[in-house]
Amino acid sequence: MAASSRRWSPGRRKRQAWLTAGLFLFPAIALYLVFAFIPTLEVFEYSLNRWDGISPDREWVGLGNYDRLFGDRIFWEAFFNTVEWTAIIVVINVGLGVVLAAILARKIKGRIFFQTCMFIPVIQAPITTAIIWRWMYQPNGAINEGLNAIGLGFLATPWLGDLTTALPALAIAHSWSTLGLSIVIFLAGLQAVDDELYDAAKIDGATPVQAFWYITLPALRPVTAVVFVLTATAAFKAFDLIWGTTQGGPIRATEILATYMYKRGVLENNYGYGSAVAVALLVIVTLAMAVYLYMQARRDD
């Protein structure tokens, strides 16, 4: 490169560098700007207007939508439902994920097979998960029939029709379809742990549970943060699973931010107010992701 470019003037060289790079970058960057970055800025703009999404006249209402939002009982219900839903999913994925990964990390035969079994739900579409679990949760569905079969029939209940069980039941379905990914991320983290530590602990007479507690868990702390943030953000922005099952019901037991935004924004053509809900979602997820990426960058350095 140096040989041929020495003849060029600095200005021309700079322009040439720009042209070449631009050629490579243009398709990706142009698409990203038009269909991702600018819409993200526009959500904020929309949220300051009253608009039906179609008519040419938008009414500027300033922070009016946010004023309404903070006083909107259903928004807060959806917000706390989202927090509860996210918390259940994070507890399951981190708790079970760490234990199953610790077991799978041992040198056991058929490890890949077990890992595959646990990963297959991860590649399913959320709408497939919705259809399957809605069917299993029906009053005469697989869950209740199974409970009956093992003598726990008294626990049977219309899972998705009950105000108290609907949200946790769907959170379990979501965890089913994401747990495999948590396990794999934990496994990647465990590869960094020195096997000799376990051998040494064994010689010192440590039980497997002690080894897990004093070696595995401390070693997994950074990865746990990764799984925590990824699981939480994925849960926070989830839409398909709930839309494919309860659509927020019964009453508002499974209303989360994404479904509430969809109802107000898309179904009621209330673009301003829907966008205010979207901004709440966007800010929370973006902040969590920013913290995560910052942590990752610091670890890579």
Binding site: Y32, V34, F35, A36, F37, I38, P39, T40, E42, V43, Y46, G53, T233, F236, K237, A238, F239, A258, M261, Y262, G265, V266, Y271, G274, S275, A278, V279, L281, L282, V285, T286, M289, A290, L293
Partner: peptide
Amino acid sequence: GLMIPPTAIILPLYVT
């Protein structure tokens, strides 16, 4: 772009 949740920008995306 890594941080943008698609769910949150569907309204402007639809208009676009």
